[in-house]
Design a binder for these strands. Structure first.
Lengths: 202, 202
DNA sequence: GATTTGATGGTACGGTTGTACCACAAAAAC
DNA sequence: GTTTTTGTGGTACAACCGTACCATCAAATC
């Protein structure tokens, strides 16, 4: 054998090229050739590591979902050294607002995938659906904890409020993606709303 | 000349075919041919009424935005025979949640267009951006009116709360589109949240 | 050292897409 | 009654797409 290459590394390299390409010209315009050029390899190589385009798209989506998980966990860890519910919730929700360019790229492609998965049968039933469900129960748990700690408004229904929070963060994130609002506006509004859920805080 | 056809009617017929086709197989998969077949006409005719595909897509988007306006106005009129701020706000926000199949079709294609417009230069700068801005100030006005009528929580900042409401409704609508939540769940949560903004109501 | 095998390049093929081109019927204009 | 003009059909073409196929080179195996 020749160079004896690390397959996973090569695959990651190609997938990143796809994500970059998708972010700049749209997921609909990525082709085997454009990905190959962006990655600086031959079309044949893309085929070699991902047989078919569908598998390439699927692999990219999986990697994206994985990164999403990492991002959130990173935020949570960076936010509170302690296990402060409000800090954790805040961190998780702010993550949905694209601030820097890399974050914008990430969320844009993620959203494109999500919308595509509605009509594309090959993409439906992928881990996209699992993440929000976990998020849901996670937020419910954190809200309940915050209420018991006397930190969050006790009148709230944690179950419904969790859905509201998720919707607010998704809605704001989307509006930033669509260039309807700046990231600063969105985070400001998010904090405003969080202040209503978690009253009187220093 | 022959039949002396109503151009606008023909154009509307073709655009509706496009929207139907986009709803079922995705906006990315609509072609001149698929639209022609769906509309029951020849490809040449589609060319005749919309010279190029780009113009066809643009025309469809314009029509969609128009319909969106009609939908909201219809909801507003149907909701309160009176000019009750809460009823109006509720009507506007519930509109973003796709309930019946036709509404789902509508919002799906609308969202596909919105996401597409981020990367497609030909679609950017279209009336998509105008609508949410108007909506914004409209909601601010309604909220302020509701506060003065003693109907809405006076502690709220109308400016920020309007953005929150819009984000909640958009976020919930999106989650329904992505099959993460049922329309019933979404509307229930929306009403829950509205109850927090408009306290103690019969 | 011969041979197998993993990694890569180049290219050609069938299908699809947007669009341009040619033809023609029929109603209006003169 | 001839001549425009409008609406419509069919088709052909160049570009592009995903993918299959063939060739090659180098390292590992024996």
């Amino acid at each position: 054998m020749p160079k004896l290459v690390d397959h996973e590394e090569r695959r990651a390299h190609i997938i990143d090229a796809l994500l970059r390409s998708a972010a700049s010209s749209g997921l609909h315009s990525v082709t085997m050739r454009s990905v190959a050029i962006e990655a600086g390899v031959s079309v044949r190589l893309v085929q070699y590591y991902f047989d078919t385009k569908e598998q390439l798209l699927l692999a990219a989506m999986t990697r994206l979902a994985l990164r999403m998980g990492e991002r959130i966990q990173h935020r949570v860890r960076a936010a509170g050294s302690t296990t402060d519910p409000r800090g954790i919730i805040e961190a998780v929700l702010v993550e949905a607002v694209p601030t820097d360019e890399e974050s914008r790229t990430f969320h844009l492609v993620y959203t494109e995938y999500a919308v595509l998965s509605v009509t594309d049968p090959a993409l439906a039933g992928q881990p996209f659906l699992a993440a929000p469900d976990e998020m849901d129960s996670f937020l419910v748990a954190q809200l309940t904890a915050a209420q018991q700690a006397g930190d969050a408004d006790p009148h709230l229904d944690p179950r419904q409020e969790a859905v509201v929070l998720l919707a607010v963060s998704a809605g704001l994130g989307l509006s930033v993606l669509l260039n309807q609002r700046t990231a600063d506006e969105a985070t400001a509004v998010l904090h405003y709303h969080l202040a209503r859920v978690f009253p009187d805080r220093t």
